[in-house]
Nucleic acid binder design. Structure first.
Lengths: 188, 188
DNA sequence: TTTGACATAGTCCGATTCATACCGTACGAT
DNA sequence: ATCGTACGGTATGAATCGGACTATGTCAAA
């Protein structure tokens, strides 16, 4: 079988991943930003419901720029930082994505629940320790989210705060759950 | 720079991933199983709090067997299926993992929440559509989880049911949230 | 008793992502 | 001047993804 003839419009397909839209979205909300700024911003917001390694915030904007969805500008002065901003095409891509709701619910990874599922091989004490640990961690998480909420609630619109609200409710649901496990660990 | 001298104990490090423990755990709960059986079992249970591609259930047991943590037996008859079971060493590894609680809370990926975060660029109607979509999906998810719960509650211990309980609570939390968004979409 | 449809069971592999170690560069304090 | 440290970014091998593809058994109808 022969290869397909090299097409004239042989651009590599350029698949846009969730992180692509995330980058464009952040740039839309914040205006022109450097990768590092995006990284900081993501850490206080989107990372809670879409985690990813920070190094993607360096590679991805380059790809998007090559595709004409972003513009890149180099800063003057000492640091030669790259500042990215949305182009018209980028804004259009973002808008297009936003009107196609995902047909899926959240996807969760939770080591503690995995261990709980296998807890038949644990002692009662082991299980209680696990649960207490989680209780502590969720309290911390809740404190962090509440701090973020207080800090930003004045400045930001209700829509941007909504995910934080959900994050808090989820964390509280987990806190309650693990609290119950700790207080009254189920028999095997 | 020269290479390090080839060590006498040059075993490749063999990193055990969460999926490794998941496999061992399932084998512990179910007894000897084929990859396909694990796949089916996972689909009704652990996949809800630890998703992964099914193909790992073929490769991973092989690695674990090579490491002495599993035993492999070939079925007679037409299908030459491989049946895996835990060895003593495997059981020990599993137990060891279970007494080291993860220092982390869940990690969640949720496209819908990502879009919600950027919903300033959506119309009010777009947001409502998104929310209604999610409401429908969470109702479905809840129905599935309840069916699983009813089907297995008789047969299985309370510990193994606990994750399902949490899954239901999480789903209901999300359902409530999106219901509220649909009923009273926040202004930008 | 073929044959063909369907469910079961398993393999493969290129592309993507991960994770993290590492490298510079500015800036403030001493 | 220099040192420490936070900032800003790069590089890379390993792990994972995901889904297309192959193969194998089963049962029913012709």
């Amino acid at each position: 079988m022969s290869k397909l003839p090299t097409s004239l419009k042989a651009d590599p397909p350029l698949r846009l991943s969730p992180v692509s839209y995330l980058v464009m979205g952040l740039l839309g909300l914040r205006g022109p930003s450097t990768p590092y700024q995006l990284k900081r911003a993501a850490g206080r917001s989107v990372n809670y419901f879409w985690p990813f390694p920070h190094s993607q915030l360096y590679g991805e904007p380059e790809r998007l720029t090559a595709a004409g969805l972003l513009e890149e500008e180099r800063e003057e002065g000492g640091r030669h930082r790259k500042v990215y901003s949305l182009t018209q095409a980028g804004r259009a891509a973002l808008d297009g994505w936003l009107v196609s709701p995902p047909g899926e619910v959240f996807e969760m990874r939770d080591m503690a629940v995995l261990q709980l599922f296998f807890s038949e091989f644990m002692t009662r004490d082991g299980l209680v320790t696990l649960a207490q640990d989680q209780v502590r961690l969720y309290r911390e998480r809740i404190a962090v989210l509440e701090a973020i909420a207080i800090h930003y609630s004045a400045r930001q619109g209700r829509r941007r705060m909504a995910p934080l609200d959900l994050g808090l409710r989820m964390a509280r649901t987990c806190l309650d759950f693990w609290q119950e496990v700790a207080d009254d660990p189920p028999e095997a």
